[in-house]
Design a protein around this nucleic acid. Structure first.
Lengths: 144, 144
DNA sequence: ATTACTGCAAAGCATTTGCAGACTG
DNA sequence: CAGTCTGCAAATGCTTTGCAGTAAT
């Protein structure tokens, strides 16, 4: 997010730590944990403390610039830029790798409820299973 | 889960703590946290230590008898009996009421992944929004 | 200059782990 | 009676918080 980038939220002070966090997220095509963001920021010689990263993420989530996702069976939240894309992920039950889904089952779907009048704001979908690599191991395990 | 209940997983030793955990889950119509399960088990005069509850839940999840869910922005996992119903719910953001959905968006849907070879075992869907009653209040709030 | 932000340390809290004694099959 | 499970305590790991010094506007 460059200077003058209009998507920098209004009234939010620029600090090198905040720009650094945003920069890491901009250069990632998958959601990252706070720890990973901190590690990558340090690599770039931008020292950012982990607690600061959490504070910055909390701020940007509140501002709507970043989204936070809690993944089942993973004990860490992951964060990504809110690119206003509607996206869901699959998680490998073994290696916890997160794989992007390119479409959404709610497109062209009309939900039917047991009670009328529910106003949907959004949804969260989580797909679980085994990734290519872990499935091999999984079935190898079953064979023996 | 009574004695001789065929759904008790094969080869799993019966202990009063395990039966107690399952009993709490059987008598609940909503998913419970480990702490809540522990509390309810204690109420029934069945002393179960919290760490034991976690070990028991881990075992039953592995055996497929129980499912674990992490709820967004809640820092506790919740557990429920795996009733083998394929069902999704909508949760009201205000009153937390849970409303059943009668269909599933994954019927007749072919997911597309950014990486090939992911083997889907299942999915979880969380729909959020406002129920009929809370929506009225919500919009009343916005007007004033 | 004023107010907000960060470094750092330390606390919080759900969950996990280690170990010795208790219990199940 | 052998191996597993539990009580208990202590550790772990992610996340939050408190505080004093630092930086942004």
């Amino acid at each position: 997010m460059q200077k003058n980038n209009p998507s920098w939220p209004a009234g939010i002070k620029r600090t090198k730590q905040r720009e650094s966090v945003i920069s890491v997220l901009e250069n990632s095509d998958s959601p990252l944990s706070a720890m990973e963001i901190c590690r990558q920021a340090k690599t770039k010689n931008n020292s950012v403390w982990l607690s600061t990263v959490y504070r910055i993420l909390e701020l940007f989530v509140r501002e709507g610039v970043v989204t936070r996702t809690d993944i089942t069976n993973k004990d860490m939240a992951v964060y990504e830029l809110n690119r206003h894309l509607h996206r869901h992920y699959a998680v490998c039950l073994r290696c916890k790798r997160v794989i992007e889904m390119n479409n959404c089952p709610f497109d062209n779907f009309v939900p039917s409820f047991s009670e009328s009048g529910f106003h949907i704001f959004g949804h969260k979908i989580e797909i679980y299973g085994y990734c290519k690599d872990c499935e091999k191991l999984f079935f190898k395990g079953k064979e023996s």
